[in-house]
Nucleic acid binder design. Structure first.
Length: 287
DNA sequence: AACTACTCCTGGAGGC
DNA sequence: TGCCTCCAGGAGTAGT
């Protein structure tokens, strides 16, 4: 569930707390989390300063002062919580286990201790998160530009760019294409549903059925949902169910509840094996 | 090119 | 209460 807005929010929140801090201890409780070290070990992070935290697609890249980078992908249900000495918690990623619950949890995979007394916990109830420690110059081997498309927050992402990328797949359907990280990097199941609802487009629409106005609305809807999530807070969903009270989600996880635009009940379908939520009135399937 | 199925994994929900 | 099955889903791979 951590998609671009969750990872970007975490990047921003962690950056203000850990940049300039030194790592004083590393505990890897679930060794399978670590997928590649290029011959280094996690102990090579000890005594080293955090210089920068970057994001590409759904990857977090923690650049260290010794020329290494810790690359983190939270997978389906990875969560990071930083406990600061003040008692403040900085938390992001999957909301289960609940933020604020005592840590470490039985599924906590990694613990980093920092020189100001902060402790960072990576907890992952589905064990699909992945970690790599590699020279910063070789991060591209883990986060390959050849397999990652345009960043929706970057200036290169324009209506023309979206149209050009979609038009390479005239027979492709919208939802699988928007989930394809090599086309557009960072959207996942939830925000794709939100964007398609915003644009009034059915997830099974083919690219060739879209006119320029449709693509323009889709572009604006993607920008809008990312802006909502980054400004007012990420979508709140646990085990596929929307948690009421936030601005997002507006459609995902709301099966049976009224569409916020027209009142018709939201329907759930499966598209490409993924649970998909639509308003059948606002998002008609036309070819 | 487009699609499906399968793998990794665990916890929560719902059926009976 | 308690088993059992299904589902959640990012990403990679294999097969059609």
């Amino acid at each position: 569930m951590p998609e671009l807005p969750e990872v970007e929010t975490l990047r921003r929140d962690l950056s203000r707390a850990v940049i300039g801090r030194r790592i004083i201890a590393v505990e890897l409780l679930r060794p399978r989390l670590l997928r590649g070290t290029d011959g280094y070990t996690l102990d090579d992070m000890i005594g080293v300063e955090v210089q920068e935290i970057r994001r590409r697609a759904k990857y977090l890249i923690v650049e260290l002062s010794n020329g290494l980078s810790l690359v983190i992908h939270l997978g389906l249900a990875g969560q990071i919580v930083l406990e600061r000495p003040s008692g403040e918690h900085i938390a992001g990623g999957h909301p289960v286990p609940s933020f604020g619950q005592p840590l470490p949890h039985s599924l906590t995979s990694l613990i980093l201790r920092l020189d100001d007394g902060s402790i960072l916990y990576l907890t992952d109830i589905r064990q699909f998160a992945r970690l790599w420690l590699v020279p910063t110059g070789e991060v591209a081997a883990i986060v390959p530009e050849t397999r990652l498309g345009v960043e929706p927050l970057a200036p290169e992402f324009t209506p023309a760019e979206l149209a050009s990328r979609l038009r390479r797949h005239p027979h492709g359907r919208l939802k699988p294409l928007l989930l394809d990280q090599s086309l557009l990097a960072g959207l996942g199941n939830i925000y794709v549903d939100e964007a398609l609802w915003g644009a009034g487009l059915h997830p099974l629409r083919t690219v060739e059925s879209l006119d320029d106005a449709d693509v323009g609305r889709l572009y604006e809807a993607i920008k809008e949902v990312l802006d909502l999530a980054l400004t007012y807070g990420v979508a709140r969903i646990i085990n596929g169910r929307a948690i009421p009270g936030a601005r997002l989600p507006r459609v995902h996880g709301r099966a049976g509840q009224p569409c916020l635009r027209c009142g018709h009940p939201i329907e759930k379908l499966r598209v490409g094996g993924r649970g998909t939520y639509i308003c059948p009135v606002c998002q008609p399937l036309v070819e």
